[in-house]
Design a protein around this nucleic acid. Structure first.
Lengths: 301, 301
DNA sequence: CGAATTAATGTACACGCGTACATTTTACGA
DNA sequence: TCGTAAAATGTACGCGTGTACATTAATTCG
């Protein structure tokens, strides 16, 4: 050992990993970021930080990959080529390609974990926030502050998050004796623009609603801007969001929203995944749901 | 080849890299993200996307690392252990630790590239945006629209970007026959809070200035909010920012700012770095500066 | 003090690929 | 048809580590 330090010997990680038959890498799949408006970019930054911190603590390196067009479903290759020992996938959706590639991973029993998405029927590890409760509490908050007719701008149903938030919305209405009205349900694509474009529709039913619950902050902001241009101030119609993105606190008005523990989600996914790997892949797949937190900023009159 | 495909043979990347004596990994060093308020998080997301795209095209994988406390200066280890073939470093500053670790890299002739930071005296590859011109044009724009007494809120001087933006500011003043006044120069730390806290100071010289140029959008927004609480509306005092972060367009008022081609910076750094590596490490070190773009939103009266 | 047990040290080999070189087959012109 | 060059195929070895096993040294206990 003394000689080793004197000679500045550093083990060759390549050779180590080769003979150990493991890469020491935890793969992280991101959607192609440049065009991403679906999530706020800070969504990924936070989750990645959580993953990075946990992985580092356990001696794993992070191999970052963007789910491009080419290797779309070739997650299997990553394992076959021993490039990664496990995989964490972000931003997956309920579309045939994603489902197919994940099914293949399950069949080959490769360890991986989904963050923020659920595929029913697939035995996969998942980590998510409890969006049902998050949505429920937001709606309850609105109701408790006197609103009863609450429009709902959801994201694409390809995301299980959207299902969850709708479920929470419905449950809160039901628990407060308010009828669910399909005519108050709208769909955006999580972009600011989609919120903006719904402004005219919302304006047309303005007199029949007390509030609008947009399922992310960007859509909420777009809507507020669109309504503003039409002449409907935030003082006339409450709009709330979801995510507690950084823009939520700087905008005008500061947005009432739901905080999601993104950093912790990344951390938890990593730890659970690596735990189970060192434990010999035993045990059931896990489905963690972290609590959200209502952030009341200005659900004003 | 036919047999290979029939048997679903996939080369073992570990063995390949081992015998080739290269990892196939491009290391990317990020500052610890969770506590980062210095840059907007979208700064890193954009640059990372650019790096990822370019690296992928050339068959390199991205090894993501967060510059924690422990392995702070152990970038050398990454090369000795053959974990990376080259390194891209983000968010470095002019502090002894950073300078020391970079000096070591230079001495060992390891290929690496800095993005957004310059270390004078060190022969390193760098990619940055042309902040001198970016700052110059912003100030010229302010002057052309009638302002002459322009306060300047800079970031920490540990960042070469801060030097550059100050240089651009000074040059624009000089070219328009306006005296540089040290009393109009302030320093924040790129956080919204630091802008907010400067509000009272700015307010005290309110009658002696026509505009405030904050060198990032977050400080500008914090300042606007702080001024607002004091009773100084954005209609009374123009505030402009820098970066064109996404918050810049949603805030009230929409912020006049300077766009920085972050994605392209990541792309360029990667390509230049890998180019030179495949070319046998020949040639001088490169210092690329990409153009910025003035984004006029509401430099109102 | 010697045998038995335990610890320390030494040795050989395999991991799966690239590469250099040897061998065989094919192609081509005389 | 034969000889030579070119192409295809085959063979052996090394990359730097972990690991299993063999050997040697140190320790323990009767």
């Amino acid at each position: 050992m003394k000689a080793a330090t004197e000679l500045h010997y550093t083990p060759n990680a390549l050779a180590q990993n080769f003979v150990r038959r493991r890469s020491g890498n935890l793969g992280v799949i991101l959607p192609l970021l440049p065009k991403v408006h679906l999530f706020s970019k800070y969504y990924f930054a936070e989750i990645l930080s959580g993953i990075g911190q946990a992985a580092n603590e356990r001696g794993y390196d992070l191999l970052l990959m963007f789910a491009g067009a080419d290797e779309n479903k070739d997650y299997l290759r990553l394992f076959d080529a021993r490039k990664v020992d496990a995989l964490i996938l972000l931003g997956r959706r309920e579309i045939p390609e994603d489902r197919a590639s994940l099914t293949a991973l399950v069949e080959h029993k490769h360890p991986f974990c989904l963050i923020g998405q659920r595929f029913t029927g697939l035995q996969t590890d998942t980590v998510d926030a409890d969006h049902i409760t998050g949505s429920y509490e937001m709606v309850r908050h609105l109701i408790e502050s006197g609103r009863r007719r609450i429009a709902f701008i959801n994201g694409p149903m390809e995301y299980s998050n959207s299902e969850d938030r709708l479920a929470g919305y419905k449950a809160a209405l039901a628990d407060n004796g308010i009828d669910y009205d399909i005519n108050l349900i709208f769909e955006g694509n999580f972009s600011r623009k989609s919120g903006y474009e719904l402004a005219s529709t919302i304006a047309s039913i303005h007199d029949r609603i007390d509030a609008v619950f947009a399922t992310n902050d960007r859509m909420a902001l777009g809507l507020i801007q669109g309504l503003n241009e039409i002449g409907i101030s935030y003082k006339d119609l409450t709009v709330v969001g979801y995510d507690n993105a950084d823009i939520a606190q700087f905008c005008n008005p500061p947005l009432t929203t739901v905080e999601v523990p993104l950093f912790e989600m990344g951390q938890l996914a990593t730890n659970k995944l690596l735990d189970r790997m060192s434990g010999g892949l035993l045990g059931e797949s896990f489905h963690e749901k972290l609590p959200t937190r209502l952030v009341v900023r200005s659900t004003n009159i």
